[in-house]
Amino acid sequence: MIITLIDIILLTFMGATAFAILRLRSLFAVVMLSGIYSLLAASMFVSLDAVDVAFTEAAVGAGISTVLMMAVLALTGERERLPARTPILPLVVVTLTGAALFYATFEMPAFGDANAPVNLHVAPHYLKNSFAEVGLPNVVTSILASYRGYDTLGEVTVIFTAGVAVMLLLGGRKGDDAGIKREPADDAGNADSGDDDDRDTRGGAA
């Protein structure tokens, strides 16, 4: 019972934090709140028995993500402008999608049901045989590295690719590489270099 109570409180906090992130205009506060949100998510994962996931979320979401976001805010400024118009269409779309998903949850197996389809297929095999087959007490590591090693190789390749892509984007010094800055001029065939004055005239023309 006490676990259920903790779950409900943590989940409610997560919802409130997410809503505050949506409402706030100061991006500095948004980034800090997203760190808190990740920490709440990590606590929630511990309560849901996913200790490995909680560990990762705490290190990545609350640690590295926040540092990266702060570094970007230092480069881009930390105030969000008010949107020009109240967005009605997104609100309608989000409400309808949310309602449809909410309706669908009643078909889902109850939370914590040991006989839910997701718990019946290969998981029992892993839990029963992985110690004999792989010899590690931590089933998550056995599956991650051995049973689904091919998957994890793919994930590591994705991280590698993301690292290379960020290097390509930010690796050169500002403005002296053949980057986004000079491409519009090359495509359009004029000397329009995209600085402030030109942007105003182009915007006016359109």
């Binding site: 996913a50 996931v53 997701v118 290969v122 839990l127 689904r148 998957d151 991280i159």
Partner: peptide, 16 residues
């Protein structure tokens, strides 16, 4: 443990 494995890698790919 299977959802844990899937999500564990998804988090790190997410930050990348």
């Amino acid at each position: 443990p299977i959802p844990h494995v899937l999500i564990l890698t998804a988090i790190v790919v997410g930050v990348a």
